[in-house]
Design a protein around this nucleic acid. Sequence first.
DNA 1: AAACCCCACAACCGCGAGTAT
DNA 2: CATACTCGCGGTTGTGGGGTT
Length: 343
Amino acid sequence: MGRSPCCDDNNLKKGPWLPEEDQKLIDHINTHGLGSWKALPKLAGLNRCGKSCRLRWTNYLRPDIKRGRFSEEEERLIIKLHSVLGNKWSRIATHLPGRTDNEIKNFWNTHIRKKLLHMGIDPNTHKPRTDFNHLLNLSHLLNGAQFGNLVTPWDNALRLQAGATQLAQFQLLQNLLQVLNGNALVPNIERTSVDVGPQNLNPLQGLLNGTNTLFTKEPNLTPQEFLNQGVAPQAVNDSHAISNSWSCFEDGLELEDHAIYNNISSSNCFQTEIPLPGLVSVSPETSSLNQKESNTNATNSAINSPTSTVFDAWEKLMDEEASGSYWKDILDLTSSPSSPISW
DNA sequence: AAACCCCACAACCGCGAGTAT
DNA sequence: CATACTCGCGGTTGTGGGGTT
């Protein structure tokens, strides 16, 4: 089957539309309604191909198009829909009255995508990014300390701080990842090293040498299994809060999308059937880190809120990280000689 | 003030699916 | 059934405007 000869005519005008052209198109459609796009240009007196006319109409001239900035509500909806439908912009657009697929696509590529990346979330998978370059970069400092090639005591202090920061970040990230993956919480930090053997006690080492990832796949647990493993009941409740928030969103989906959503969520996206744990650490080692409980409340409350999403938690985390107040307390704890952390 | 860079968005291109002949 | 054609979608590009150096 050959390609359509629709726009092969080189004499047809391309590029930005002039107001007169817009008016011709509008007048024609108002008078004759939508018919064959192929025939429209000639009938409307336009030196454009039908495809160009259709695009101009559907993306710009249609009277029901809502112009202007996307609201936060719309942005959240787009993110959620994208996590369910992927790059099905036309499908996503059907859930946002007055918005075109092209507009949503542009908004995604220019705003949301960057925002998610900044938050450490892979915009394609909606899971946390596996390329934590900043963590890896920091880990070089650790490696230096590990091999004893310190130059000055000041270097040592810097590396210690970097290491402590990384450990704290890793632990928190780990919990978040567990939440996002719908997995049980890791009881302690050594748990992540199980997959790579007892010699690899540094989780970052696994990241560096490729033997470990931030997404240690573990079996999903039922609420009862959660409890049996000693996870606080609150954690289970928290998980239901997230599930509820998702189910609210599900209500807004059409049946067709619902089927897709269920398919995705049960495989590699968000888990709603399996309860999600809360952002609480049960690690004996890290419990001392979490003594500064007030500092983690912001993150926890984000999860506790029935209307919050995982993205809220991430955003809060990143804000905390940026402000440094949260990490400062951890650093104060871990940079002391009696630091409970040892790799 | 000019040059350069970056960003947002409109528009284009190529492809696949669906439909008519 | 094969072919021709149209339509719609998603990826990509081009361009204008604003900000920065």
